[in-house]
Amino acid sequence: MKRLTTTTAILALAAGAAAAEGELRVYHWFEYMPQELVDKFEAETGIDVIIDTYDSNEALLASLKAGTLGSYDVAVPGDYMVAIMAGEGLLDTFEEGELTNKANIEDQWLNAPFDAGRVHSIPYQWGSTSVSVNRDIYTGDTNSLSLIFDPPEELKGRINVLDSQGEVMALASIYLGIPQCSQDRDQLRALDELLQTASAHWASFGSDIAKDVLVSGDAAAGMIYNGFSAKAREEGANVEYIYPDEGYVVWMDNVVLLEQAPNRENAIRFMDFLLQPENIAQVTNYAQYAAGITGAAEFTEEALATSPENNPREGAGPGVFIEVCDQATQEVYDQIWTRLRS
């Protein structure tokens, strides 16, 4: 009797895991897609959407390589990670004409360097990564990345940094004025030294916590994405998103078609759905970044167009994409990164 119940339970579980008809498995960032939009897609297509979340591009890659490839249909990696994933053979390619709404992609994003001709991915949102400070605590007028890399007294020990190697290394390189993925040994040593010194003033590492630590007051400043900072401001934190003198990181997250997707057709339907301006605009309104789809602006809230987080101030440095480093440099980066935490 006991054995019978057990067997039934196991079979039921196995069946639940195997049922793949009419499903779509999305591997996504946290807090990045409004539930209403998911509901709308489900209502339009009858497809059941299952969402799992990750908190950094690197965590997404690690998970797929550790054996979850084949259980998701789509994921939403950032620009440089699209290139890495394509190189690792983790991405499937669209057939010619498979995406009905592909023409809606804005020209400037159609031939993105990380996916020329858009054969694996479509734009999701784009935005920037920089620094936000709590204006109740820091009243100075510095507009430099020194706010986190050489912080003023009142911010020391109260800084949160994204738990994302790519973004930290890129911003540190921008601050030092050295090229990303530099192979110059003196420059790499300087990078190491800068981060070692700076990290003594950091309180925590975390991407998913980046908004909450500002809202709850656990941190007084933090590396953060522009839309996430806008949400922190809306939730009552007196934070200002800084566009630094030295420059900042620009990124674009993209919906990619994963290799071995169990529901490839549904994935394509989902992408076509997101390529419709009124749909992707809902994401923009929710996450407060920008879409790369023609006509989406019509459906986005007007406040977004003028929000301080979405408009670099006069005199700010340039926004740059994160570059993919070669193996030798990446290994140096890995070493620097580990030493930060020891």
């Binding site: 946290f30 916590i209 709850s216």
Partner: peptide, 8 residues
């Protein structure tokens, strides 16, 4: 755990 990271 996932939810808590984004704020308690």
């Amino acid at each position: 755990f996932g939810s808590v990271k984004q704020g308690i």
